[in-house]
Simulated assay, not measured.
Amino acid sequence: MTKKDTKTKLMDVAEHLVRHKGADGFSYSDLSNVVGIRKASIHHHFPAKADLLTAIMQRYDQRVMDTLEGYTANGSSTAQQLRDFVSFYRDALQGGDTLCMCVAYTVTKSELAEGTQQAIGHFRKRVLSWLQQRFEEALKTGSIKNLEDPALEAASTLALVEGAQISARLNENPESFDLAVQMFLARLSDT
């Protein structure tokens, strides 16, 4: 396995574990067992767990933003872009077994290193900015019922999908997510 392949594999496994068990739910021993390398080799790539947690959050940030920008670039309506956003968060549940990275980290945020907390903050700002832009467009086109303040709508929508994920995970039932977002989705129109 090349150095890059090993580092990528470590990040893939760590992300999977964080999304299933939280940031505190795994150790370098767990990674060692899954990836099949010594703990010392893991420390070569990521000297501390905080380095690994920050790296996977930054990678996740880029992947999510690429996805969101893809929704914008494909020419679909603002309402459809927002539906896709909600679907993205629902899909992250993987049947109620996982959470998106940001939600998984936020549960133990106070115990995370400063760099990881900053990466989470950066991610949330970027997602909120993307959402606010969609709501600003919707305000111009009238494609969302009862829309008044794009910034408040963005904050409320992000909180909605994150909270819906937590509810679905607690209930081990993705339909909990669907119920939580139903009223928001009903406000969207492709006009």
Rank of each mutant, 00 (worst) to 15 (best):
Ser176Asp: 05
Phe135Arg: 01
Gln132Glu: 15
Ile37Ala: 03
Arg126Asn: 08
Glu136Cys: 13
Ala73Glu: 07
Leu158Asn: 01
Gly36Glu: 00
Thr78Leu: 07
Ala138Trp: 06
Thr78His: 04
Ala180Met: 00
Thr157Ala: 11
Gln58Met: 09
Ala164Trp: 04
Arg38Tyr: 10
Leu188Ile: 07
Val34Gly: 01
Asn74Met: 11
Met101His: 06
Asp12Asn: 14
Ile56Glu: 02
Val181Arg: 05
Pro150Ala: 10
Leu152Lys: 11
Ser32His: 00
Asp66Trp: 05
Thr108Ser: 08
Glu136Arg: 14
Arg83Glu: 00
Gln132Ile: 14
Val103Gly: 05
Ala164Cys: 09
Phe88Gly: 00
Leu82His: 08
His43Asp: 04
Lys49Tyr: 02
Thr116Leu: 02
Leu179Val: 15
Gly115Gln: 00
Val34Phe: 00
Gln81His: 09
Gly95Pro: 07
Ala23Gly: 13
Phe177Cys: 08
Thr157Tyr: 04
Ala138Arg: 13
Asn146Arg: 06
Ala73Thr: 10
Leu99Gly: 09
Ser143Val: 07
Phe177Ala: 06
Lys145Ile: 13
Lys145His: 12
Lys3Phe: 09
Ser110Met: 11
Thr106Trp: 09
Asn33Ser: 14
Val34His: 02
Arg83Cys: 06
Ser27Leu: 09
Met57Ile: 11
Glu175Ala: 15
Asn74Pro: 15
Leu128Asn: 09
Phe177Pro: 02
Asp12Met: 15
Met11Arg: 03
Asn146Tyr: 11
Tyr105Ala: 09
Val86Cys: 01
Leu112Thr: 04
Asp12Ser: 14
Gln58Leu: 11
Asp190Glu: 10
Ala92Gly: 04
Arg83Phe: 12
Met1Trp: 14
Ser27Asn: 05
Leu179Met: 07
Ala180Ser: 12
Met1Gln: 03
Tyr60Ile: 05
Thr108Lys: 06
Gln80Val: 15
Arg134His: 15
Glu172Tyr: 10
Val103Glu: 00
Asp30Lys: 02
Leu131Cys: 01
Ser167Gln: 13
Tyr60His: 07
Glu15Thr: 01
Leu170Tyr: 14
Val107Leu: 12
Arg169Cys: 12
Leu179Gly: 04
Leu185Thr: 14
Gln133Arg: 10
Ser29Val: 01
Thr141Gln: 08
Gln81Arg: 14
His43Glu: 10
Leu17Gly: 02
Ala48Ser: 15
Leu128Ile: 15
Phe184Trp: 12
His44Ala: 07
Leu128Phe: 03
Cys102Ser: 08
Gly96Glu: 06
Thr6Arg: 13
Cys100Arg: 00
Leu93Asp: 01
Ala55Phe: 03
Ala104Asp: 02
Val86Arg: 01
Leu112Gly: 05
Ala23Cys: 15
Gln94Tyr: 01
Tyr89Lys: 06
Val107Cys: 08
Val34Arg: 10
Val181Ile: 05
Gly96Ile: 06
Cys100Val: 06
Ser129Ala: 12
Leu188Gly: 01
Phe88Glu: 07
Gln58Ala: 07
Thr141Asp: 10
Ala113Pro: 13
